[in-house]
Design a protein around this nucleic acid. Structure first.
Lengths: 343, 343
DNA sequence: CTGTTAGCGCCTTCAT
DNA sequence: ATGAAGGCGCTAACAG
């Protein structure tokens, strides 16, 4: 069989000796067609090796059955999980996923969104970059393309969005530690332009206040540079007498653990340690870190659900979904090392 | 400003008082147009809020400037890294990425490939599922859409493909361990339908033969079920006197480490341990595992490069690229524990 | 340097 | 139950 251009509906129609519109209708099951005719068409499709051109179909219907996902960093395991969840949920609904990564860069993010919009995706899921352009969302609201915010949320709840219960999780974690007797914390809070991290920091202060501890006693390390945070923490750990260290994300945990190592401190013997998001297989390696686990996969799934619901009813009131994060307590916050810090 | 349908080239043309083809040409820079006219067009584009419809453009040019990527499991960190690499390299070249995941299921894989082909991607990158349908590749070869195989390669080198130097890395690793005096290994080899794992197993036997060791002394655990492998290994470790355990992938490492734990064996004190692909931040936790690191990101980048080259010259001879894997030696293969196993 | 026009492959109303 | 025909928005000859 020689090289031949891809068969179109015209070829199928000719082969089956029917009109092109009949072919279309058996393809889409969009109107009744006599069984005999249908079988002729089916056979013709088989014979010609016809494959539907989704492009032409989309152009005509002005609907692409595809969604776009822009994440801030496809490399981060947590985001990779979200991508996975989005992909799976989208595939289940017959939606194709267009993926872009902004690399935490506002410019690339802006361009990625443009690209996907130009491709006429039916909807967009967006985990914004840390320095995301504020106008981006405003512009997006003006579009007719539905948008769902993922992980990196927006105070103004005029958009569909799905994230974790960051503030409450941090509050509960710190309350637990305070209950163990910890009174001086060091928090690697990170880039407070990232809403997720801001929320976690808020939760921290919630717990501090609740426990009747002094904010001034706490060592809060904010900033975009992880190495700066590492340095400050290493310094702060020797000067102050923090008994517990909390990292607000996995990269921050890496920085914090390095700082601990530089200070010659071990966990939990010298200092308690807990992290958000966390590492894979935390039970398999020492130290076993207490971790607030982000339900990343489920967040991706939920984002697709919200998006599909929005596609179904464009004027419904926006939803803001918060998924619960489980706190997995492990060795690194065992209380036995604590008494040595007590007066 | 009221709700209005998306502006098209016609609107722009009318606004700028030029023909629609002029608009097209300023948009694509595809022929000279007087500066004055161009500016009128540009202004009209601005004013109408025109955005190019990539769908229509693609239909007309029969070229979508997009590529498809089908991975076997977007959840696995190694594949997530490949996805990241592919995305980045694609974006740099102005290609949009359509992502699908087969979940190691041949049926879903088949359907994912169909979907992407229907969307007329310019090329396809494929990390096949373990039980991938053999006909899939044959069918794909018949297509005009270029395909690059990623990670999961094909013996027949009639396709572009990029993977790691699995066989040689394993050989080198085992040679190193044999040089330390290890003579009885246990290998969690995994699903030998996966070419990557087969290659690694071959490399193992290469080294065994080279070192003059007896194949019959080696404990080789193959099979698709990780829990079976865990059980067999736990059993085998107590019966035989293996001094070194090797895991051929991260999931297999998890199974193997569990088996070690069940057997009450510690590494490196009781037994040496090494793994392929490995865990994140291996220096940060104990035990520090000797790891053959897969250059997953770079593999993704290379796959895009091959694909783009193929798009440029469709008849060139297929390339088979093998990327080097660095072996990171760590505590888990320190030799000091070995003498207790010697006669 | 610019305009006119014929499709790309498909869906869908309107006829029959 | 089936056909005919007009676009969807865009590119690329072909004309001027």
């Amino acid at each position: 069989m020689w090289e031949r251009a891809m068969a179109t509906m015209v070829d199928v129609a000719r082969e089956a000796e029917v009109s092109i519109s009949t072919v279309s209708h058996v393809l889409n099951g969009t109107r009744n067609v006599e069984t005999k005719t249908r079988n002729r068409v089916l056979k013709a499709i088989e014979k010609t090796g016809y494959r539907q051109d989704v492009l032409a179909r989309s152009l005509r219907r002005s609907k692409t059955d595809s969604i776009g996902l822009v994440v801030s960093d496809a490399g981060e395991p947590a985001f990779a999980e979200m991508v996975h969840g989005v992909e799976q949920a989208a595939a289940e609904r017959g939606l194709t996923l267009l993926l872009a990564s902004s690399g935490e860069d506002a410019g690339r993010e802006q361009r990625a969104v443009q690209t996907l919009l130009n491709r006429r995706v039916d909807g967009l899921i967006l985990a914004r970059a840390a320095n995301s352009d504020h106008d981006l969302l405003a512009g997006l609201q003006r579009e007719k393309t539905p948008v769902v915010l993922l992980d990196r949320l927006y105070r103004d709840q005029s958009l569909d969005q799905v994230g974790a219960d960051n503030r409450e999780s941090m509050r509960a974690l710190v309350a637990h530690l305070a209950g163990q007797g910890h009174a001086r914390f060091a928090v690697a809070a990170g880039d407070t332009r990232v809403p997720t991290l801001t929320e976690r920091l808020r939760g921290f202060f919630d717990a501090i206040d609740e426990a009747g501890l002094r904010r001034a006693d706490q060592l809060v390390l904010a900033g975009a540079s992880h190495s700066d945070i590492e340095d400050s923490l290493a310094e702060g750990l020797s000067e102050r007498s923090c008994t517990a260290v909390i990292a607000a994300s996995t990269p921050l945990a890496v920085a914090a653990l390095r700082a601990l190592e530089r200070s010659g401190l071990a966990t939990p013997a010298d200092v308690a340690f807990a992290t958000f998001d966390g590492f894979n297989h935390p039970d398999m390696f020492r130290p076993r870190l207490t971790t607030v686990r982000q339900p990343a996969f489920d967040m991706g799934v939920a984002a697709v659900r919200l998006l599909v619901e929005r596609l179904g009813s464009p004027t419904a009131v926006p939803q803001s979904v918060r998924l619960h994060q489980a706190i997995e307590y492990r060795d690194s916050t065992e209380a036995y090392g604590l008494d040595r810090h007590r007066p």
